[in-house]
Design a binder for these strands. Sequence first.
DNA 1: TATGAATGAGGTTTCATTCAT
DNA 2: TATGAATGAAACCTCATTCAT
Lengths: 234, 234, 234, 234
Amino acid sequence: MSKTPKSEVLAKPAQSRRVTTRAAGAPKATPKPPANRAERAAERRAAIVEAALDEFIARGFAATRLDDIAKRAGVAKGTIYLHFKDKESMFEDLIRTAIVPLVGRMHAPPPPGATVRDAIEGFALAFMQEIASTRRGDIVRLIVAEGPRFPAIADFYYREVVSRGLAGMRALIEAGIARGEIRHQNLARFPQIMVAPALIAVIWQSLFARHAPLDAIEMFRVHLDLIFGERRAA
Amino acid sequence: MSKTPKSEVLAKPAQSRRVTTRAAGAPKATPKPPANRAERAAERRAAIVEAALDEFIARGFAATRLDDIAKRAGVAKGTIYLHFKDKESMFEDLIRTAIVPLVGRMHAPPPPGATVRDAIEGFALAFMQEIASTRRGDIVRLIVAEGPRFPAIADFYYREVVSRGLAGMRALIEAGIARGEIRHQNLARFPQIMVAPALIAVIWQSLFARHAPLDAIEMFRVHLDLIFGERRAA
Amino acid sequence: MSKTPKSEVLAKPAQSRRVTTRAAGAPKATPKPPANRAERAAERRAAIVEAALDEFIARGFAATRLDDIAKRAGVAKGTIYLHFKDKESMFEDLIRTAIVPLVGRMHAPPPPGATVRDAIEGFALAFMQEIASTRRGDIVRLIVAEGPRFPAIADFYYREVVSRGLAGMRALIEAGIARGEIRHQNLARFPQIMVAPALIAVIWQSLFARHAPLDAIEMFRVHLDLIFGERRAA
Amino acid sequence: MSKTPKSEVLAKPAQSRRVTTRAAGAPKATPKPPANRAERAAERRAAIVEAALDEFIARGFAATRLDDIAKRAGVAKGTIYLHFKDKESMFEDLIRTAIVPLVGRMHAPPPPGATVRDAIEGFALAFMQEIASTRRGDIVRLIVAEGPRFPAIADFYYREVVSRGLAGMRALIEAGIARGEIRHQNLARFPQIMVAPALIAVIWQSLFARHAPLDAIEMFRVHLDLIFGERRAA
DNA sequence: TATGAATGAGGTTTCATTCAT
DNA sequence: TATGAATGAAACCTCATTCAT
């Protein structure tokens, strides 16, 4: 055989297991006649991006065929090259673009009147709902998977997401320490600890969810209990 | 162009960033002429396994060329097929075989005279030294990367490593709770929390180590402080 | 896939549909300890010849693997090369050797006291029983199949079998004409006509027997009736 | 060495010994720039079919290289896969398509005013001129050669050509018997006998023509004399 | 003499990319 | 701008042949 594992697990074209913005199963973008030319082009590009992300997530970079992306996006193969230089830079563009929305959350302003724990719990809740259980989580896993082969992506991700996110988390932790909510001063040195369960949740979703479901939010709460101390009521 | 990203980051053949048993850069295994035929065959197989792991880790399944594996192992392409049915089952075999040694550790008998914390800290130390900072850690990342495309691997990994490891960890946590070392009873419901920093460390190594080194052991200690309470001395 | 059609019709190794001298299904020649070295060698060679014929008949020249021949003969692959220069000359040798026994019959001495029709009917009977319904018939088909690619074989077959056989047949026909058994003088110009049903039978066996069985002997008798005139009893 | 016999008899690419529609020796179909795209595609497909038949006839299925077909057709290797799923189904498609035109002839309506002998002689003439001495005859031989490995082809050939042809021939024979042209009633039980010389002719062409030319039409006439009785004039 | 592990040329097939329409 | 037929490099895999044992 060839380059792609024949695992019966992957139907063709790849079917995302999560809810996406496009109607699942609609292989062709509905041809609702849009306005002008530029608009059409933008729509096509969006369709390509959408389709490409789904395929890349399902198969990884190397095993994804442009043919399948085109089919899923409802465009011709050549059209992809009107929007992207080649497969590799398309992949990098895609990931970069998909990462940006992840960043906003991170800078969530320190809670005005709430406690630090509430702030972090809110962040965790948002993360689990908007990332871990959506395609965005798959993108995080995709970065873990392809990062070593795409240092540009790993770099970008570190710069735009990881370092900022950890910085924000460190600030929150320090606020928590200052307010007396957190006793472990050393935690500020390793803000990774705070988000570790989030990463666990993302990976668990992709790999083990069908063996044993994981209540990620509850796990995160227990984790926060370690840090902030036990709470009374749920 | 071709199927493999042309990232200048990957010389050909893939160069592992870690120490391996074979002298890095020696494309041909040669020197010591081994004894009989069976021994030779075993050696060749070992060389192929070694080379294949390196290549798969560096490039992922789909982007790895059997040609490169052969070259790196110092054998002809056809020789690979004397030991493995095809690329896919070679990959699965390899991962399976590489996983087995990970398992032993997990069952580290509960500490005879030591505290639970000491046991877990010992485990963490071992993990960081023997896994996170060696090629084994890369294998864990490889499983994260390719698991969704190789459900057989994900299943095996869950069965042999994850479920056992978590069970063992849960037992330790319960022992800790029984002895009064751990106050958070809920922790036993999510032993994943205990090992989360280990996974963080593995991923950090692969993706971000060159941006910001991470003292994984110290991180783990801080994490244990959250669980067991602050210790006096380092 | 590859070079060999994956038709489910061909189990591996090829299973001749006819009775052969070796016990069918016995992949390894039984190791009954033979006498001396030369004898052993001769036996091995015979086993190879036997196995090779079966495989070539079942798959044709190009699709036959030496590996399968060796396996079927119960020898190592290398052993084949002790007896034959290479696959091609093995094939030519084999066919040549297999053809020789076909020749004898052809020279069947003109019938001492019998009629020409009896002689030819006897030949036909022998042909159908000893060739058309045995592996030898397959060899004839094999020659038809591979002849154009192996002119040496076609030449040899023409020289040793066809031209001699037709000459013998012509002599019989002329005898029949001389005796008044045959009225069609022109038949001597085309002795091929006499044997045409034999060839039909061989081909029918291989290709269409499972769709519609053919009573080759009866067909031949009807054919002889055309030439010699109707007979009274069956 | 390789899988293909190195017989010096076969130049590369295979050179058909017969007249084909394309100018023999012109490796690239080029000159007249055709109209639209669909037309171009149809032409390319036709060129592939043409080339593939020539190669398959000259070498048989297994020994034919897609590379040579592509070269001979003047297309790139990949282009073949735009028209055929793989080598095997290309072969089956080709044979099937090539067989269809053979069928028409078979149903030659019973002679309006002519004798049965004239009808059959007309059929024989047509067969010899349009099949036995053209590439179509080679296809018949190809079916004999590869049929056992491609049961689908043998089945199709039996269903579409053999059974229909024999049925038609049987009808003619019965007409001949009814009219008193044929005395041998048993002939209707084996219409194969009637066409046997045609098959002989096809095989003779491929294998022995260069050793001894065969006047197939005259042979057929002699054969008909056996059945219908001697005629006066030639 | 016999073995069968090893070789590597060469086959089939895939798929990123181009370009005439 | 959009298409998709065509390309051909390169991947996986096979198997005839060699040769150290």
